Amino acid sequence: MKLALYACCVGPALAFVARPPASSTSTGARATSTQLDARKPLIAGNWKENPCTVQEAEALASEVAEATKQAGDVGVVVIPPYPFLVPVQNAASGALMIGGQNCYFEEKGAYTGAVSTAMLSSVGCTYVLCGHSERRTVFRNDDNAINRKLRAVLDHNMMPILCIGESKEEYDAGLNKAVCAIQLSKDLKGVTGEEMKRIVVAYEPVWAIGTGLTATPEIAQSVHDYIRGYLAKMYSREVADEVIIQYGGSVTPDSVDALMAMPDIDGALVGGASLDGAKFGRIINYKKA
């Protein structure tokens, strides 16, 4: 799928954004309030390579599970390192969903260190991260590999959380929306409209991950709105209005309320703050507008 880049003026700066591909099934109508309310918020905690011991992981899971009792109608996922998946699930006593931080697209074979989607599914994973910026940059996963991983997750009846977002240099150049469009077009290759309804998109500006910087709610909303519009062009407005789009990038108890008040922000993918039970509990129990 080819993307056409065109220039448009945004304030004093010249920004380049990607023109979504034409689709005969898309409509220009925005979602009704009923459709918006149908998107159940999803808060996910990506523990990355933390904590150090299984005992710490179990204690954190228990604390987060306790915090969900007051959360209302919010889905909560914790995404621990592979060795802790089963202990965390047991410690959570059914109060939390669990996810895998990554996967390999081959089902089995001589791939030392790899973890397949069949393995993740067999231990109870509901979600799997695909395309996190650290996998893209540190481990050099390209869009073709991410697409194959996403396909494998869908084929094993789990839900991918597709992470997309721009670097600081790309943001400064006004290319944030163009980068998101290119990643969506490549990473969703071969995905049908029905399958798209099972995919969560996480917009994570790379410059805001682990830096303490957070896009303002207005900036985040602008990109989320663009992503939803792009998905409407790729598939249909109906499909786009059902997709949960999370924001990720140094989400904290101080920033979550304003972010979640935005109409196209349906949840958060939380890094560092998810390792503190009290902080993550406050994020889960964000104050609704």
Rank of each mutant, 00 (worst) to 15 (best):
R148Q: 15
R140C: 13
V128Q: 01
Q35F: 02
E56M: 05
R136T: 09
G124S: 12
G131C: 10
E106K: 14
R140S: 12
D37M: 11
L42W: 03
E63M: 10
S62Y: 00
M97V: 01
A31P: 10
L36I: 12
R148D: 11
E58V: 09
G100Y: 10
Y82K: 02
V88H: 01
S93K: 15
I98H: 03
V76Y: 08
S133C: 14
H132D: 05
G131S: 07
A118N: 13
E56C: 01
F139Q: 12
G109S: 06
V78I: 15
R39G: 11
N141P: 00
G72A: 13
F139D: 12
A59Q: 13
G131V: 09
G75H: 05
I79V: 15
V64F: 02
A91E: 06
A59S: 11
Q70S: 15
F139T: 02
G124M: 14
I146N: 01
S116T: 13
G124T: 11
A65D: 04
S122A: 15
A61H: 07
P80A: 11
R135F: 02
G99Y: 04
V115C: 04
D37A: 15
A92I: 08
L96W: 05
V153C: 00
A65R: 02
E106F: 13
G94R: 10
L120M: 13
Q35M: 12
H132A: 09
R135E: 08
F139M: 14
A114H: 09
F105N: 07
F84D: 03
A145E: 11
A65T: 08
S62F: 03
V138E: 02
G99W: 05
A95C: 10
A38Y: 00
L36T: 07
A95D: 07
N157T: 09
Q101H: 06
Y111I: 07
S62R: 14
D142R: 05
P80L: 12
A31W: 05
M97I: 01
G94E: 09
D155S: 15
S116W: 09
M119N: 02
C103P: 01
A57V: 11
E66N: 04
C103L: 12
V76F: 13
F105T: 01
V128L: 07
S121Y: 08
P80E: 05
P41E: 10
N157I: 01
R151S: 13
A29Y: 09
V123I: 15
